[in-house]
Write a protein that binds this DNA or RNA. Structure first.
Lengths: 248, 248
DNA sequence: GCGACTTTGTTCCTACGTTCACATGCGGCT
DNA sequence: AGCCGCATGTGAACGTAGGAACAAAGTCGC
């Protein structure tokens, strides 16, 4: 199926997944909290502290960290620098991932201008668009190429991650071109469900969906208010203060 | 920490709303697929068709749709227009949600210029920033106000959704101002965990996390490739540096 | 050097979300 | 008008995530 069920692959007994996706997402959050703390000179943290800063339960945090082997010291806590190292290794951040952005509209512009992308390690090395007026001009210090050259350029610059910021109608073809260029990880901002080969991983960031989910909560809250019935049914398991979102 | 666990159905009656968050997200996707289909003149769809287009299992789709009451006709399928109506009602899209964007940098610009925001129903009615050079200028047809005026303006324009596009350090204060202005739904693009009262719903969209998750998949795949043999379960029991942790 | 305290790593358990499979119910066909 | 087929809606099973509690392990104080 498209958008692989990242859970147990049916027949794929193999390593498919030892670390749950949800845990991977949280690990990325811990990583940011940790680097921020290190900058402030913090060298040790307990699971309680780190969990508080990341907005998760401490047991969940310890379980997540256990996926990368023993990194803590009982009775003391975790060495921040060491932990960062371990998480980076697990997430594959030890080597850089060249990023290509397709569709240099408003959003594409914004992403290209982020420069090294939030948290370095993801250098943007290629920009593409169809608009002839954009080709060749420099955005964020990088020239825009025509989408026809996607496959060649991606191979040449060893792009590992493709970001799609095109209008919906162009998203699938942009995706196909990226895949043709050997890109197997795609971040899709276009509000469509992409069809890709099984070995390509797609993550979708959908603003409309996010807004509609918020709308749903707002609507429910309103109806609860008006109904006067206090028995509200909360479903979101992570709606605790500072919820960490990441649904799906 | 959160009280409402209620699983039994004490009140029972307004049972219709125990919709899981994951289902809400999918419903938003179905909604888009449906509107797109309607534009193409499609009036009826089976669960199989719709599920295929949305990239989910048909059973999951039917269960999701069951949350909004019987909308289909057995032996026939779903009436697209009717379904759209039901989903919109559940998601609270029958009334418009005024959106405020805080932080008119690259991303804020992009969002403001989307105009009505992807899929209408979410008109952007206020823009805020700290930069004096930006105050007063028009972005996407709307003037930028100073963040100090957030509370007053949000109340006045009945903003229900706040979008935070500020740098990390400014995010929490932007959030506080929005909350002070009565905004209880927040979409946060800043890579920080916001602290909010219990009745405020925050959803976080974190590009760095998304990229790092992709990086993780890429890393895992690479190690599978390079290992050659299928015995990649081997993990880093000892001090294997590149281990990806499998098994537990 | 020994004991007590602290915090990790893990085990168990509960709850949820997804999927399978089937009974129910509706439209079309003869 | 009645029967057949087909797709919905739902009940049960399965697998996974998350939280509480506990045991191992290491440090600090004496």
């Amino acid at each position: 199926m498209h958008e692989h069920d990242r859970y147990g692959t049916p027949g794929g007994d193999l390593a498919s997944r030892a670390v749950p996706e949800a845990a991977v997402g949280r690990l990325a959050v811990y990583l940011r909290v940790l680097t921020s703390m290190i900058e402030q000179g913090v060298t040790k943290m307990s699971s309680e502290e780190l969990a508080g800063a990341a907005g998760v339960n401490s047991a969940t945090l310890r379980k997540d960290l256990s996926h990368l082997g023993s990194s803590g010291t009982r009775g003391v806590g975790y060495d921040t620098a060491r932990l960062v190292e371990h998480i980076e290794r697990l997430l594959g951040l030890t080597r850089h991932h060249s990023v290509a952005v397709v569709g240099i509209g408003n959003l594409g512009h914004a992403l290209a201008n982020y420069g090294g992308f939030p948290d370095r390690g993801f250098p943007v090395t290629a920009l593409f668009d169809v608009d002839e007026d954009l080709i060749g001009i420099s955005v964020g210090g990088l020239p825009v190429d025509h989408i026809d050259s996607i496959p060649a350029v991606c191979v040449e610059r060893e792009v590992t991650i493709g970001v799609i910021c095109t209008p919906s109608v162009a998203a699938q073809s942009a995706c196909d071109l990226l895949v043709a260029g050997g890109v197997r990880c795609i971040l899709n901002f276009a509000p469509v469900v992409l069809q890709v080969p099984d070995d390509v991983e797609v993550r979708r960031v959908d603003l409309a969906v996010e807004l509609q989910i918020l709308s749903f909560y707002e609507a429910r809250r309103s109806s609860v208010d008006s109904s006067g019935d206090g028995a509200l049914r909360v479903v979101a398991p992570v709606s605790d203060a500072a919820g960490i979102a990441v649904g799906r």
